[in-house]
Simulated scan of single mutants.
Amino acid sequence: MTPHTTPRSGRRTRRALAGLLPMLLAAPMALASGGPSSAAEPGPEELDPGQFQGVNWARPGDNFADEPLVLEGLDAADDYDTVRAKADAVYGGFQETGVNTVRLPVNTKSVGTPWWDAYTGAIDAATAKGLKVVLSYWEDGASSDGRITDTAAFDSMWDTVADKYADDDHVYFEPMNEPHGYSATEWADLAATWITDRPRIPKDRIFISGTGYNDEVKSVCADSRLDGTYLSLHHYAFGKEAKDYDGWVADLKNGIGDCASRTVLDEFGAPMDDEPDTGFDYNDADSGENFVRYLRADTDTVRDLGMGAIYWPALGGKHQERPTYDYYSLFALQGTGTELSLTPRNPSGIDRLKHAWGHDAGRRG
């Protein structure tokens, strides 16, 4: 698959070429004066969030778990080669829909354990296919209180992950998913410390979550210590009052502020059942269904603002409304062993993702 290229990436290349000569001329002067020799961190105009066109692959029952994270389709008894073969089949299904990014969870009960040795097969299978991988920490405690469960274990986990993948340009790092147990100031301090403690990881391969449940990115966007990083935002319809299309656009933009040039919507989703009594047609611009208005608003806004979009979930997730699968999940997993395949639950939902990623010529609204 050829990843979608946004117009911003071409502008960024031309700016880089135009700026090369003065940088070369200035380098000797900086060295002579004892100035820093490291490259300047990327500014917002040099980041390209639209390059991230992806899905989440999760553990059945969600990723908040006080145990190793065994993704849907994998088995705790699988070795590295088996995990890699299964993941390769799953990613083939993802790529058929235009996916170029997969977001995967990590926790301290997985990294550094025998399961980690096997789990890396899922990461390596993705990068071998040219997929980008976003690794995100879910707190691994029964309380799921939005705070790091064990700071020493957290730091050790990330050091282990960084030692293995810091030099792999396909791998991105999200220090924590939904840090809702911290105030905005506490979270910014924690994120800044995480960055300082891992200088090998370039800032443009770091995703800093928005505050709360990744509800808004304006506060982290304003913190200069976090400049040069991507920002991750989550936006859902559940738990909110129903809105019309324009209301959902406004609700999403309120969480973004002026930070769209750095922001990836790395969780959003809606029911994907495709049955007569429960299925929604997300291609129906005149639908009176709240979820349809929401998903159309999100996918239009992502496309209009050149943001990235990573859907939750492709596989795995909560088993609440449905006993055997998350009814937001994009795919049904079929097959046994390493012979796995995917079937879209609701093709109109896939259509809207492709629209967000710019893979169609669909109309707005």
Rank of each mutant, 00 (worst) to 15 (best):
V264P: 02
D140T: 05
F238V: 08
V161G: 10
L330G: 03
V90S: 03
W115S: 05
Y182T: 03
L353C: 07
G335Q: 01
E45Q: 04
H319M: 12
H359K: 11
G10C: 05
A250Q: 06
T120Y: 09
G112M: 08
E241V: 03
H170K: 06
T211P: 00
D204V: 12
F280M: 08
N290L: 01
Y325T: 10
D66C: 02
E139R: 06
E241K: 03
S261E: 10
P323A: 13
W248H: 13
P105N: 15
V302E: 02
E178L: 06
L25H: 01
G306H: 06
Y172H: 15
G10H: 14
V292E: 01
A242W: 06
R84G: 08
V83L: 07
T229A: 15
T5W: 04
P68L: 02
M157H: 11
E41H: 12
D167F: 13
D140K: 02
D244G: 11
G279V: 07
S209N: 09
P7E: 09
A356K: 01
D360G: 12
Y165H: 14
A153Q: 13
G279P: 00
I148C: 12
D284E: 03
R103T: 12
A285I: 09
A142R: 00
F154K: 04
S110G: 08
K243S: 09
D298H: 02
A314V: 07
K132L: 08
Y165D: 11
A297H: 01
T338I: 04
D360E: 11
S144L: 01
A32T: 10
A242K: 04
T82F: 13
R14Y: 14
T5N: 03
F238P: 00
Y311M: 01
T299P: 00
P44G: 08
D274Q: 07
H4Y: 12
G212V: 07
A58E: 10
N214V: 03
D300K: 01
S37L: 14
A118P: 00
R198D: 15
S219C: 03
E46P: 00
L69M: 06
A242Q: 06
